[in-house]
Design a protein around this nucleic acid. Structure first.
Lengths: 194, 194
DNA sequence: GATTTATCTGAACGGGCGTTCAAACCCAAG
DNA sequence: CTTGGGTTTGAACGCCCGTTCAGATAAATC
């Protein structure tokens, strides 16, 4: 068995995913060709197929990895009161998404380019993430800490608001990430308060 | 001069825009071919070029029309107090966007597929719309009616939250448009309140 | 009924697409 | 130094792309 240690595969594989992530985010899945991705990696198009079955699977893998990472990183501390849980969620969401603008962009924009079975899988993962916030709001509402007539709507409203940050916020500008987190937390806190 | 009254052009033209709007929203600009659009209209691809210079101009026109319509319809009543202006804006935004899900989808997702000069134009229109909300928030903050440390951020937060409605709300479901407007207005009002 | 002209067809253009695959390459192992 | 297999090339496949345009079509005017 030759070429196990000095193999390029553990280098080329990640580089393909990196290039695809950046290009898909910048130009959109449908507008990016396999030859463009290969060009970024410094390889011919045919070589990509040693690492991925096809273009569709590449997109699905990028989105799945992002969603799984998101679900593994989201803080769930049932010990805290709902208000503290909500604050942690808000600050986490902004911070996590800010660190991965390309993946966020793809995860929200390329859903329509997923084959049905991949779409269902990604939607399931997204649903699980939203369920975490919804549970926090529901707990807080039952405890009387929040005034939220419909936790499902409030969940979607809060997530839409928070995710919007990635469309305009860039580090090094007028505001720090901390500033943004502070102000969004303030707005969210008030919007669900009794 | 023949073929002026019975001409097809006043029928085919709008049908091309309708078909393109629907297809671009459903599959994305890059994934839709001119032949698909022509097929929906019931015409050959070449005939499209009697009505549009090229595919890019078609996209730009759809987005421009939507933004212009939005700017013409947004209520600006300087006579009202900021709180009433804000309520009118929130209800208008949800209602207007709900009535045009395809146009909204395109206006937010296809910016990256615009040629630079078209992009600049659309961004300018969007900026004018955001400026209207920002002014309301600024006025309210100065008058002491709102507690909004940074009106620019608050503007983006509110618009992101409101626009999110179009991604999930469909008439005939559990909630009426009125219900949604009521709950969103409640959240927005609280989020900017002192 | 002849004319005019807006509208549309249908074929063609050059080019890029996703994907496949035999052959070449290169390097660790023996 | 030979071998074997992981990795890459480069050409090819059939197909679809946006756009153009000469010619056919059809309806309003004279």
């Amino acid at each position: 068995m030759a070429r196990t240690t000095g193999s390029h595969s553990d280098i080329t594989g990640p580089r393909i995913r990196d290039a695809a992530l950046r290009l898909f985010a910048r130009h959109g899945y449908a507008a990016v060709s396999m030859r463009q991705i290969a060009g970024e990696v410094g390889v011919q198009a045919g070589a990509l197929y040693n690492y991925i079955p096809d273009k569709q699977s590449l997109l699905a893998e990028l989105m799945r990895d992002h969603m799984v990472e998101l679900l593994e990183a989201v803080p769930v501390s049932a010990a805290d009161v709902p208000l503290a849980q909500l604050e942690a969620f808000v600050r986490f969401h902004i911070g996590f998404h800010h660190a991965r603008p390309d993946a966020v962009f793809i995860a929200y924009m390329e859903l329509r380019n997923l084959a049905p079975e991949n779409f269902a899988e990604i939607e399931d993962l997204r649903g699980r993430y939203e369920a975490i916030l919804e549970q926090i709001l529901r707990d807080g509402a039952e405890a009387g800490a929040f005034d939220v007539p419909d936790p499902k709507i409030a969940t979607l409203a809060v997530i839409a608001m928070l995710t919007g940050v990635t469309t305009w916020f860039r580090a090094g500008g007028r505001l720090s990430l901390q500033d943004v987190q502070d102000q969004y937390w303030d707005m969210v806190r008030k919007s669900v308060s009794a």
